[in-house]
Amino acid sequence: MNSILQDKSYTFAIQIVKLAQSLQKEQKEFVISNQVLRSGTSIGALIREAEFAQSHADYINKFYISLKEANETSYWPNLLKDTGYIDKNNLTNLEKENKELIAMLVATVKTLKSKE
């Protein structure tokens, strides 16, 4: 059974893929869209990868790296907005979802570290 964090990160990854597809097809923008695609989809991939961590420390590390990727992901859409590739309306939901993921990952990392 998937966790809420797994489900939310997967749904977020779908939004990121659609954003990258749109940027590449409509705006012919490939560099930043590839960056946001890489960081935005790796959040959920790392959460999924944690399922088979080799140790508790490795398990925590996967979530911590996922948190770092989520933080990086918040940078790229803002850069796209400020450079005129997307407008604020297209950014609002993505920002909200990413902030929620970051909050959930921070809580997860804190909880896991407290169990060390």
Score class of each variant (00 low, 15 high):
81 K>I: 07
44 G>L: 02
95 E>K: 13
1 M>A: 13
51 E>N: 15
27 Q>H: 13
64 Y>F: 08
68 K>M: 04
106 V>S: 04
46 L>H: 06
9 S>H: 05
7 D>A: 15
89 N>F: 03
106 V>K: 09
88 K>G: 00
6 Q>D: 01
53 A>V: 01
91 L>T: 10
64 Y>K: 11
90 N>Y: 11
67 L>Q: 04
63 F>P: 03
87 D>V: 10
65 I>L: 04
107 A>V: 09
101 L>F: 15
57 A>Y: 09
98 N>L: 06
44 G>V: 01
42 S>H: 03
14 I>E: 15
69 E>F: 07
111 T>M: 12
69 E>I: 02
99 K>H: 11
7 D>F: 13
67 L>F: 10
113 K>N: 14
22 S>P: 12
114 S>W: 07
70 A>T: 01
100 E>S: 05
69 E>P: 00
115 K>L: 11
78 N>E: 14
3 S>M: 06
106 V>M: 08
34 N>T: 07
15 Q>K: 09
12 F>N: 00
101 L>G: 08
4 I>M: 10
61 N>P: 01
12 F>K: 01
28 K>C: 09
71 N>F: 00
31 V>I: 11
104 M>H: 09
31 V>D: 00
83 T>A: 02
75 Y>H: 08
72 E>S: 09
38 R>Q: 07
108 T>K: 13
72 E>R: 06
89 N>Y: 03
109 V>D: 04
22 S>Q: 14
106 V>I: 15
33 S>C: 02
114 S>L: 06
7 D>T: 15
4 I>K: 08
78 N>V: 10
8 K>E: 15
109 V>M: 04
89 N>C: 03
42 S>P: 02
17 V>Y: 12
29 E>K: 04
86 I>W: 04
41 T>G: 00
89 N>K: 12
2 N>F: 13
49 E>A: 09
89 N>M: 06
79 L>C: 08
41 T>W: 09
61 N>T: 00
85 Y>H: 11
49 E>P: 01
97 E>M: 11
61 N>V: 00
84 G>E: 12
77 P>S: 08
86 I>F: 07
79 L>H: 11
8 K>P: 04
45 A>T: 07
39 S>Y: 01
96 K>L: 14
8 K>G: 05
10 Y>I: 01
39 S>I: 00
13 A>M: 08
24 Q>E: 15
102 I>G: 03
19 L>D: 04
17 V>F: 14
66 S>F: 07
24 Q>L: 00
68 K>G: 11
34 N>S: 14
2 N>M: 13
63 F>K: 02
40 G>P: 01
92 T>Y: 07
56 H>E: 14
77 P>E: 05
109 V>Q: 03
20 A>Q: 10
62 K>T: 01
113 K>M: 11
72 E>W: 04
56 H>R: 05
94 L>N: 03
116 E>T: 12
20 A>V: 10
84 G>Q: 11
3 S>A: 05
110 K>P: 00
28 K>L: 12
33 S>F: 05
3 S>D: 06
90 N>F: 10
28 K>Q: 15
115 K>E: 02
86 I>K: 03
68 K>T: 01
26 E>R: 12
84 G>L: 11
41 T>F: 07
96 K>P: 00
34 N>F: 01
22 S>V: 11
111 T>Q: 13
1 M>F: 15
84 G>I: 10
101 L>V: 08
10 Y>W: 10
103 A>T: 00
91 L>Y: 15
2 N>W: 14
116 E>H: 12
